[in-house]
Amino acid sequence: MTSSTISCTPARSDTTNSEISPVLPRIGVVGLGNMGRALTSSLLTRGFAVSVFSRSQAPLGELEKQGAQKVSSISALGACNVLFSSLSDDDALESVTSQKGGLLDSLAPGALHISTSTVSPEISRRLSQAHDSRQQQFVAAPILGNPDLVQSQRMFVLLSGHAQACEKARVILEPIALRIILLGQDPGAANLMKLACNVLTASTLQSMGEVIALLRKAGMDEQIAFDIFTSTMFDGRVHKSYGGKIVQQRYRPAGMVIPLAQKDLRLALQEARNLEVPMPTTSLVHDRLGAAVDKGWSALDWSALGALAAVEAGLDTNV
């Protein structure tokens, strides 16, 4: 598998993990936000033994009821063969991995760190080298899909890193993913692709918010408009799922909160500057997300770009 390789695993069957591998590894999960909790729940339903760590006690109760084992420190996850991290940004991933008593210090030689976080390509490359120096393995495996899709095992996974580590990760991910897309040996490739996907999603939300506000202001029925959009030329997953949130003004609970979306566009723009690629639309949408944060909407889903368009058009909105 070279750095330019792009391939996809076939759609998974409905076999159980015990049919896929006779010996299941002990899996650890660090980072129990919305995505981390959904990922843990999905692993548990497939029969994996899962240990979890969180500084906050709030997410642990329900996961323990499902069979997860709570541990008191990151270092206690060192007994795991495979470690998933689901963290908010570069700083959080760096801290959990590189701090004293963190994953680098704790994982055994041969253990695999699967980073599902949406982070910069640079940090994945750096952490991959750090794990290599400890005879550990690292792959970037950011997820396309909201927590509901993760928990229902309908997520898409972008996967990159050393070939042997990717194959080891694939065996773990295949039972809980709808599709795994291999993007080569550069650990940063999967992260860059995830940022690109989030740029397209955010740009779509901005555009749908604008046209729905236009039609509402003209007195037209936005539900009819939504039905026309999604049954003709704009029938993609993003148009249907997030467009539906805009039309229904359903911005809670958030699948992706606005500050995280803003962070992802900032990382994409940083890569664009490094590669000298103009991205004017991305810059505009990044600023629109910032305007939503300034309104105190940090807890809302990023589809609240539609609410911002409505408010600025003088329309009522439910936020």
Rank of each mutant, 00 (worst) to 15 (best):
R46N: 09
Q137L: 15
I20W: 06
A68V: 00
A58K: 12
A38H: 11
S73D: 00
D89P: 02
Q136R: 08
L24M: 14
E64F: 04
S128L: 10
Q135C: 03
S73C: 04
L32H: 10
A38L: 07
L24K: 13
R126W: 04
V23L: 10
S56W: 05
S115H: 03
S95M: 05
V30R: 00
H131K: 11
I74A: 05
P121C: 12
L93S: 15
D89A: 07
L107P: 01
S56L: 08
A108T: 11
R125P: 09
V30K: 00
S88R: 14
L112S: 03
L87Y: 07
C80D: 13
Q137W: 05
K65S: 13
S124V: 01
Q57D: 15
I27H: 10
G28Y: 03
P109A: 14
P121L: 13
K100C: 02
D91C: 04
L77D: 12
S120K: 03
C80F: 14
V119T: 15
I114F: 03
R26E: 11
V23D: 09
R26V: 10
N81D: 15
F53P: 06
E64P: 01
E64R: 09
A76H: 11
R126Q: 15
D14T: 15
A68L: 00
F48M: 06
A76L: 06
V29A: 02
S128H: 14
G31C: 04
L24G: 10
S133P: 03
S51W: 08
S51L: 13
S21P: 00
R134C: 10
V96D: 07
D14I: 14
V71Q: 05
